[in-house]
Amino acid sequence: MNIFRLAGDMTHLASVLVLLLKIHTIKSCAGISLKTQELFAIVFLTRYLDLFTNFISIYNTIMKLIFLGSSFSIVWYIRRHRVVRRSYDKDQDTFRHFFLMWPCLILAIFINEKFTLKEVMWTFSIYLEAIAILPQLVMLQRTRNIDNLTGQYIFLLGAYRAFYILNWIYRYFTEEHYVHWITWVAGVIQTLLYGDFFYYYFQSWKNNVKLELPA
């Protein structure tokens, strides 16, 4: 465990807590894409299949349980909660996210580190996580209004993967045989997808104006 990895996990944790806090306190999911949240729930489900079989550390297990629990409760809130679901704007959340899953699954079957069910599922979760934010970014472009909690959520989500890239660089230079091309390429693509959002987020922060994405 290095500082970049810890910072990444804490930023990731902060992002899901910001989202849960927003939905739980103001009982609204305006501007939040349910599809992205469903994809994240699938990412954790397929990535943590070895939750009970492959014990890494207490920290690892607890974090996995938190991410699984928070992602499923966010999906539940938006789909089932009698108040929150009324603020879900399904006409704006139109990204065909299940179409995204197939290329990830096919790619995971052909490009993986080991052709076993668990490994293919894990690789699928890596590819899926890289593009899971797309429905949310498309929805933001459409609705144009980004309340600051949603903006913070996306910013933290992007920052977590950026910290992971620093973690991979650090581990590459400090641990021999640490090479995970699949994770690295997917992680860089994922972080780049946040690229333009980061740009507009910093612009709005610097000029102290409300965050606006171009049409």
Partner: peptide
Amino acid sequence: PKGSRSHDEL
């Protein structure tokens, strides 16, 4: 063993 550390990240 290598296996158990293969996916030690979240």
